[in-house]
């Protein structure tokens, strides 16, 4: 009696019912990150907002000027001038066409104080200003720039003004031109 040839079965062979659980088991071992890199995508929105920036700063907070005998000529009414160019003004604007004004808080000074913006790296220096409580142009035609200039103060006094001390608070302000 002849027998039909039969395939011998190895002990490690899996049947169809066993393959699926094994496959799931292997997939479960793969890290989620690998799956995301291959099959996933993600996005987000980044919003950058730049506000109007107007910054102005003096390099030193205190300045002093002194008129004494060395600054006076006999027979000349005006004593001085004495000057101080030790400080600078620094600025940064991201708006078009800005200017810097200057004023003092001292309503009735005894002596004459003038200020000038010297060699600005950007913009145009205004003519020398005699300081008062009304804001006057110090630097004009500056737009979207950062820069610096030397602040030159000039003090004079008339003999008739006598002696004494003027204390000013000088304010530099950014304004639209």
């Amino acid at each position: 009696m002849a027998h039909a040839p039969t395939r011998s079965r190895k002990p490690t062979d899996l049947n169809k019912g066993q393959i699926l659980p094994v496959l799931f088991f292997i997939l479960a071992l793969i890290p989620q990150g690998v799956v995301a890199q291959v099959y996933g995508s993600s996005f987000h929105n980044v919003t950058v907002t730049v506000a109007t920036v107007n910054i102005v700063q003096a390099s030193a907070a205190v300045v002093s000027l002194t008129i004494g005998p060395a600054d006076v000529t006999a027979g000349v009414d005006l004593m001085g001038p004495v000057t101080n160019s030790a400080t600078s003004l620094l600025w940064g604007f991201n708006s078009s066409l800005r200017k810097v004004t200057v004023r003092t808080n001292l309503a009735a000074p005894k002596f004459i104080l003038k200020v000038l913006c010297v060699t600005p790296s950007q913009g145009t220096a205004s003519p020398e200003v005699t300081l008062s409580t009304t804001a006057a142009d110090f630097l004009i035609n500056t737009g979207r720039s950062s820069g610096t200039c030397t602040i030159r103060y000039s003090g004079t006094a008339l003999a008739s003004a006598g002696t004494g001390t003027d204390s000013h608070t000088i304010t530099f302000t950014v304004a639209a031109q």
Partner: peptide, 12 residues
């Protein structure tokens, strides 16, 4: 938008 500086002018 502004900054201050204190200035003293003294006359002897």
């Amino acid at each position: 938008a502004s900054t201050n500086q204190t200035l003293t002018l003294q006359v002897f």
